[in-house]
């Protein structure tokens, strides 16, 4: 990512390989694992947040929005491809996709 992940010498390592920073899994680019990519289609999305719930990498990003009647709610706004590893769980769990009339999350082959 940055110099933070430049390979260190043995003298620079913490005692016994202890990890002293929490939450550092976020720095790991699992996006490189992807062979297929989910593509979110905002016009078909009903913002049920199933994809957000099932995503193992927390790649679905939320924003503040509102329902048609004006109640505040969270909405899907984008997919973080740095972390999305293309597992396809979101594609499989999307109720719009399941219903079959439209595709809210398309699964396309990753361009190599």
């Amino acid at each position: 990512m940055t110099d933070k992940y430049k390979l260190k010498t043995w003298q620079e390592l913490p005692l016994g390989g202890v990890i002293t920073e929490g939450g550092n899994a976020a720095d790991y680019e699992t996006g490189t694992w992807r062979t297929a990519r989910p593509v979110w289609c905002s016009e078909h999305c009903i913002h049920c947040l199933n994809c957000w719930v099932f995503c193992p990498e927390e790649a679905y990003k939320l924003s503040d929005g509102q329902t048609r009647s004006g109640k505040p709610r969270k909405e899907i706004c984008e997919i973080d491809y740095y972390h999305c590893k293309g597992c396809g769980l979101c594609v499989a769990e999307c109720p719009v996709n399941k219903k079959g009339d439209a595709v809210a999350i398309e699964f396309v082959h990753e361009e190599s």
Binding site: K8, T9, L13, G16, G17, V18
Partner: peptide, 15 residues
Amino acid sequence: VSWGALDLQNYYIEH
């Protein structure tokens, strides 16, 4: 802190 993390080809020998 986390103890006992996986350590592969890029760091095992330094540890």
